[in-house]
Design a protein around this nucleic acid. Sequence first.
DNA 1: CCAAGCACCTGACGGC
DNA 2: TGCCGTCAGGTGCTTG
Length: 273
Amino acid sequence: MPELPEVEVIARGLHRSLMGRRIESVEHTDLTRLSEGADTLLPKLLGRSVERVYRRAKVLLMQLDEGLVLAFHLKMTGRVVHGGARGSEKHDRLLLKLDDGSMLSFSDMRKFGYIKSFGPGELEQWDFLKRCGPEPLETSAKDLARQVVKRKGRIKSLLLDQKVVVGVGNIYADEALFRAGIHPETRGIRISDVRAAKLFSELQGVLRQAISENGSSIRNYVNADGDAGAFQNNFNVYGRKGKECRACQSLLDAVKVGGRTSTFCPKCQLKQC
DNA sequence: CCAAGCACCTGACGGC
DNA sequence: TGCCGTCAGGTGCTTG
């Protein structure tokens, strides 16, 4: 579900509300298909305190005491929400009670998401993170551009490739391509260095703006407090097929690129093969 | 190594 | 009302 801005907003919210909280009990688990069984995960959690919550790529990371780190990948429909006491709900996978009586829940309708735990020094050895490319907001647009201008793949797929750049999903890839005036099917190798740098500069802008507006809510996303984001009101193309381009009033079109719907303006984003 | 396509899962929605 | 196809914010595996 969430892309970089949504995970970042969740991480900041949880960091504020969970710092110093201790896990008192596990109220509910459905860890079927999660990477770790309840028998090994749950004993590690009891009595641990939260020291820091942060994000790397699209992964939410919770640093606990004794060097333990919990990693949450939300995939398409995962949620991590902190709030008042409540009973378990249909898609809850893990429900923790904290020492102030509040609850932390991880739920995921489609069950693509997962939780992994890491002991001291183990997080750095995690293959998933080792394979990840640069963070888009901590790398210059020029350096990011180098990753795509030699590649034969279509630019939309390259933006979604976490080895090229992390954190970008279907929404922000389409929005960045629109802002840069690049057709999603354009081959990386057909894009000049200057236009590729412009693309990543626009990507950085759209990601920053989305974070400042609490992320985008299409159907499932809510932040750590259970509130929806607002950036979906600023979409230029995502989910707007058949509507008028905000820049030129042409009707927006959509194609499948790498199996993902890619919405674009046929006039503002000319195809260059 | 790179590019592309399908698999994983549940639910919402539109057409008949 | 119900059945069927299609679609959904991501990634992993397999195939050329």
